[in-house]
Design a protein around this nucleic acid. Structure first.
Length: 298
DNA sequence: AACGCGGGGTA
DNA sequence: TACCCAGCGTT
């Protein structure tokens, strides 16, 4: 293992000067605000989350506020962040916080992990960022920095390995305050400098320690297979949700023409089975509800 | 371990 | 066009 103390110093110092001033990082942001930001940031970039988070925290500043909100309004406020099941789970988490934690956010990662939509990453992130508990945080940015800096790989493997977890724990500073700064700093380094596509190695504070640089920046071991979009169920589900966010309801007989008229499907024309599969899937997920004649948000 | 799940910005 | 993004839950 390399000299980790030098890495800690260089990367946290870099963060002090170059870290972004994001609202959920400010000292006056509540743990609830941190939790909301982390859920919104699950697979959605910072720039798209910013305006939605700001409006969200204005409307529902505490878990109790969100728990009491109409779910249809919650889904509309979620807007086009994507993966709207996250919004349902966030409201369910708000209810659980009221019922099980007196309306507060627990600091214990195991208790956080028990909440709907809170996985290993989000539990560790909230525990560290909101409460200063030095949990080992591992997100896609941190994995990529570790893969390059320590292992000399172009990108980490698709799935998180036990070896990666051990490495992340070994790299954690012993000092609590430094450990929490390290979590934020490595994540930010991955987001701003050590990016997936075209990293800005000239701006990197640990360029001279980087195993990937030393190895001649080899290409990733594997070929990423991107998600399809055009014609998929996700596209159609998203188009149906987009229509219902803009309307009170839609007549079931007019669903196809109304969704098609939004233009969100491009040239794709779903067949009967795809329409049926997507509508029943949205019903099953609780993202829409059906009366005899209409579909609406919950 | 692999898959389904949104949507938009970027190279 | 393909890839990427502060992942999670299910199979």
């Amino acid at each position: 293992m390399m000299n980790t103390t030098a890495l800690h110093h260089k990367i946290t110092r870099w963060f002090d000067h170059h870290g972004r001033d994001l609202p959920w990082r400010r000292p006056d942001c509540s743990p609830w605000g941190v939790l909301v930001s982390e859920v919104m940031l699950q697979q959605t970039p910072v720039v798209r989350v910013l305006p939605v988070w700001t409006e969200w925290m204005h409307r529902w500043p505490t878990p109790a506020d969100l728990a009491q909100a109409p779910t249809a309004e919650v889904l509309r406020a979620w807007g086009n962040l994507g993966y709207p099941r996250r919004a349902l789970r966030l409201q369910s988490t708000a209810t659980a916080l009221v019922e099980r934690f007196h309306g507060t956010v627990p600091a214990d990662p195991a208790q956080l992990r028990s909440l709907p939509g809170i996985g290993d990453y989000t539990a560790a992130a909230v525990s560290s960022f909101a409460f200063g508990i030095p949990e080992t945080v591992i997100d896609t940015n941190i994995r990529r920095v570790h893969a390059r800096l320590v292992n000399g790989k172009g990108l980490p493997h698709t799935s998180l390995t036990a070896a990666e977890k051990r490495l992340a724990q070994q790299l954690m500073p012993d000092d609590t305050s430094t450990a929490n700064q390290w979590n934020k700093a490595v994540m930010e380094l991955g987001a701003l400098v050590c990016t997936a596509r075209s990293p800005s190695c000239a701006a990197c504070p640990v360029l001279s320690e980087c195993a990937w640089i030393a190895a001649g920046k080899p290409d990733p071991d594997y070929q990423p297979t991107g998600q399809a979009w055009h014609g998929t169920d996700r596209q159609l589900r998203g188009a149906i949700m987009g229509l219902l966010r803009a309307r009170d309801s839609v007549d079931r007989a007019e669903l196809r023409s109304a969704v098609t008229a939004t233009g969100k499907l491009g040239t794709h024309r779903p067949n009967d089975s795809q329409w049926e599969r997507c509508v029943s899937g949205l019903l099953h997920d609780g993202l829409i509800v059906a009366t005899k004649q209409h579909l609406t948000l919950p």
